[in-house]
Simulated scan of single mutants.
Amino acid sequence: MIIYINDKACKAEKGDQLLDVAKRNNCHIGYICGGSGICQSCFVYVEEGMEHLSAATSVEKAFISDKLAESGGRLACQTRITGEGQIRVLSRAEHLRRVVVGLNVRDFITYAQTIGYNVTNQLPSGAGNIVDRVREGKLNPVQSLQNIASGIGPAATLAGSTVLDNFAFLQGPASMISGGAKGVFDAASDTLCRISGGQLHLPGATCRTHGGGEPELERVQITAKVVR
């Protein structure tokens, strides 16, 4: 079956964890603790298909507020596919990226308030859940630390490649080596072009879309005034 993570088609099977599906398909969902359920880095929004997923675990209930749960919030390391059907998932990082790139101030404020509320209200229950699992032998602290150590490298690599794919101007150092300062300027203009839907470009720069002879729709003239 096919499910969609950040709008990317991913092969999955009944019984799979969402986090494992993301790993196999090289699709970005954060993971640091290796599925121990102690870091919340694999938090996702289920946009469609909650009925085809397992019920929220005690770990999720401890870490995710009712407000976030109502918005489709789940932990990918705790959520399994229980049936076939349309499933669409959005990672927290992708959700925030879309808010920022879309320059949606209202959604950004709402997002910040919701996350702040979750941290403030769920920290005690989350910490208590970890302690209880350690006492019950359901969570091995040593193994959890080993999972974190083994997960940081791949997670950082995946996050880095995702950032560079979406924000080309961060490829500046590589561009400077291959094309000088103009390469950085062109990369920034390319990002501005994508964000604005082809409407905006930096003066004197090109982008991948309009660098091949296709005329751009509009240019922006930037001037600076020195105040003494």
Rank of each mutant, 00 (worst) to 15 (best):
A159S: 10
K61V: 12
A62T: 10
L170N: 02
S196W: 12
C207V: 10
L164N: 02
V59Y: 01
Q146G: 00
N166R: 09
D16V: 10
E84F: 03
K61M: 06
Q40A: 12
S91T: 13
Q40K: 13
G37K: 14
E218Y: 12
Y4W: 12
I195W: 09
K225M: 03
C33I: 15
T157Q: 07
P124W: 07
L170P: 00
I87N: 04
P173M: 07
S178C: 03
R135K: 12
T120L: 15
I109P: 00
A56S: 11
D66I: 07
G179W: 07
V227W: 02
T120W: 08
R106I: 13
C193Q: 06
P203D: 06
Q78K: 08
G180T: 14
H201L: 07
R133A: 02
E216P: 01
G73V: 08
Y117W: 08
P154A: 04
Q17F: 15
D66F: 04
V89Q: 04
D186Q: 09
C10S: 11
Y4P: 00
N6T: 03
C193P: 02
C27A: 15
V131N: 02
C33P: 01
E70D: 13
Q86N: 11
R97Q: 06
P215N: 06
G198F: 04
Q199Y: 04
N147A: 03
Q143D: 09
G37N: 10
V100C: 07
R24N: 10
L202P: 00
V101Q: 09
E94G: 00
Q113Y: 05
I32W: 04
C42V: 12
S196G: 06
N6M: 08
E214V: 15
G37P: 08
S178G: 03
Q199R: 14
R88M: 06
E60C: 00
N6L: 08
V44N: 03
I5L: 07
I148T: 09
Q113E: 13
G15D: 05
D186M: 09
T114R: 13
R92H: 09
G151K: 09
Q221C: 01
S41K: 12
T82Q: 11
A187K: 15
C10P: 08
L139A: 03
